[in-house]
C-alpha cells in the first residue's frame, strides 16, 4: 500500500523473501552478534569446504533492515573463500541492497559482525588463530 515506505524495493524484497534463513545441521562455524544500539540479535552459521563457504544460514531478531542485510550478506558470501568473505563490509552489504536509510546503517554492522564471528568460530575449530 505504502509505495514510499522507509525502504527501497530491493530491501523490501529481501525482507519479504529472505534468502538462506535457518540454521545449518552440521555447521563448521556459528557466530552471533548483538546490536548494542537497539538490542537486536543476528546469528549466522556456515559450512566450509576447501576454504570456500559452501552453505550459509541466518536467523535475525531485528528490524526490516536487519533481516534484509542478513539475507544479503548470506548471498554475498556464498561460494566465496574465507578471505573474500572477510572482505565484505557492512557498507558493501548496504550498497548491494541499493542503500539503507541513514538511521538503519547500524543494522548492517550486525550482519558484518555476525559473519566475522562465524568465521572466527570456524577458525577456532580448525585450530587456526
Amino acid at each position: 500500500m505504502i509505495q514510499n515506505g522507509p525502504y527501497n524495493e530491493k530491501v523490501m524484497d529481501h525482507f519479504r523473501n529472505p534468502r538462506n534463513v535457518g540454521v545449518l545441521e552440521n555447521p563448521d562455524g556459528v557466530g552471533t552478534a548483538g546490536n548494542p544500539v537497539c538490542g537486536d540479535i543476528m546469528e549466522i552459521s556456515i559450512q566450509v569446504e576447501d576454504d570456500v563457504i559452501k552453505d550459509v544460514r541466518f536467523r535475525t531478531f531485528g528490524c526490516g533492515a536487519a533481516i534484509a542485510t542478513s539475507s544479503m550478506v548470506t548471498e554475498l558470501v556464498k561460494n566465496k573463500t574465507i578471505d573474500e568473505a572477510l572482505a565484505v563490509s557492512n557498507r558493501a552489504v548496504a550498497k548491494a541492497l541499493g542503500g539503507l536509510p541513514p538511521i538503519k546503517m547500524h543494522c548492517s554492522v550486525l550482519a558484518e559482525e555476525a559473519l566475522r564471528s562465524a568465521i572466527d568460530d570456524f577458525r577456532r575449530r580448525q585450530g587456526k588463530p
Binding site: 500500500m1 505504502i2 515506505g5 523490501m12 537486536d40 531485528g62 528490524c63 536487519a66
Partner: peptide
C-alpha cells in the same frame, strides 16, 4: 515474544493494514 515490531508492522503494511509499534527499531 521473539519478534521485532518493525518486521510485524512492515508485514501488516504489505497486507494493507496500518498499525504502530513501541519497538526501539522504529
Amino acid at each position: 515474544a521473539f519478534v521485532e515490531g518493525e518486521g510485524l508492522l512492515l508485514s501488516l503494511d504489505m497486507e494493507g493494514i496500518a498499525v504502530s509499534t513501541g519497538s526501539a527499531c522504529t
